[in-house]
Design a protein around this nucleic acid. Sequence first.
DNA 1: GCCGTTTTCGGCCCGACTGTTTTCAGTCG
Length: 571
Amino acid sequence: MDPANGPVVSMLNEIADILEITGSDRFRPIAYRRAARTIEALPKPIQDYIKDGSISELPGVGEAISQKVKEYALTGKLDYLEKLRKGIPPGLLELLNLQEVGPKTVGRLYMELKITSIDELQRACEEHSVSKLKGFGEKTEERILQSIKFYRGSSRRFILSTGDSVASSIIAHLSANAKLIEAAGSLRRRKETIGDLDVIVASDDSPAVMDRFVSYPDVSIVYSRGETKSSVLLNSGLQVDLRVVDEKSYGAALLYFTGSKDHNVELRNLAIDRGYKLNEYSLSQRNGDQFVAGRTEKEVYDALGLQFIEPELREARGEIEAAREGRLPRLVAESDIKGDLHCHTNWTDGSSPIEAMIEAAENRGYQYMGISDHSKSSKIAKGLSEEMMERQLKRVEKLNSSGKYQIRVLCGSEVDIMPDGRLDYDDALLSRMDFVIGSVHSRFNMEKAEMTERLLTAMSNDYITVLGHPTGRQLGSREAYAFDAERIFEAARDKKVILEVNGSTERLDLNDQLIMEAKRHKCVFMLNTDSHHFTSLANIRYAVSMARRGWLTAVDVANTSDLKEFSSMIG
DNA sequence: GCCGTTTTCGGCCCGACTGTTTTCAGTCG
């Protein structure tokens, strides 16, 4: 997605929301949402499509919507939307964020009880005036109160690594009754954050699986418990949905619940084109329901004439077309990685000694690894003074010549990029290092132009090898700083500065979309962990996940090369 | 509102679960 399109996407979705609440033709809001999805997935700003007239060729964007998008893009507002907004009180839209409360419910609550905000809804439920409405009852009232409580509580997205640990614990809990079991959804697609967790099970004894599931110790609320589907809320606020299917439907179910939604819509439409019907049970003949495929995902893709599409690619970003034409990339895999250069030690803010980091890297089968402690200005991180840096260089040299390790240990530094773009050590010291990771750790709130200059200046230093965690974002706590990505990626390519994909679980930086953009600029990448403890070297899987979501192959990634070739790349 | 090798009008992905029903509407994914 191009971030510049965000406002247009919200505009279209808001129109859809209002149309749903006011109860117009059922299909008009669907049309607006479809157009919003299309525009959300565009790689370039919508203005580009308006300029060359290709906007009305976008799927789901016809005459009426393209006119509205043009007006909005040109003037920053839209008459039609202003008029719609006047028709309903402003607080009404927020009610849609409540679980189990949809547009029909909001519409009726407004029409019959004059409810226009979450506060008013809460009061109405507490006074039991909602349950007196026709079609509503006590349980509905309680459910709404619960949703309100949840909505006001925790943030509703979880980082990927949290999802991984919950998933493996639930899978362990259920595995005795499951023939096949796997986490699906955004977790399986390796999205940077997940909203909920989907688990798919193949089993002959569905009731037993369901019983076991709803009695998982960490469950706080059971939302639903059915024969094939159950849904619970954990104490952490994470919702978990479980589906149980027959073994012969397992692949179809996994495919269906892995998504993304847009990928599924495209797949189903392709199925229809080919005379089939695709649902969570099988791919079947459109007439007669005869089973065609469904035991495995590959079986379904095969029957549709597609290459197998890795879950990380299933975002409706052109992967289905590529699969049809047999030109999907062979994605980089964890087993391709031959070294990790972003490792801190207890010389600065890490908690493991150099030797422990080296041994952990060796145990992973790496050919090389890099020590990259903080530079002197990172006071909080106990950055190394020049003298200490000198000592560390000598220490690593000694370890390499000790004969104790098979692995080659490189010594570098994660050097602060100062506000003016200079690096935190002088060139003489930098020149003696095997590699240099330049990172921004201060003054995150610079203006875009200033930050861009800062990064460009840093990248023009001859000794910088890698741009570390290029956007500085931390999931759920710190936004990416502003900079002109296009200029930075062009400079990275021209100056041969490698872009880091940082696998630290709170960072995941670059993210998938920026990776795709950088790849279009023909940049080279390096996958690192930013480990502060020897066990964190395993986080390389998260860097790999982002890289795969960004369509990277081993060729795009510097640290898939053997030591010899790699040395020439960083040298 | 969009779209078309079944259609320029009449469809629009589709199935599970819940609650309030007495056969179904609303919500979700």
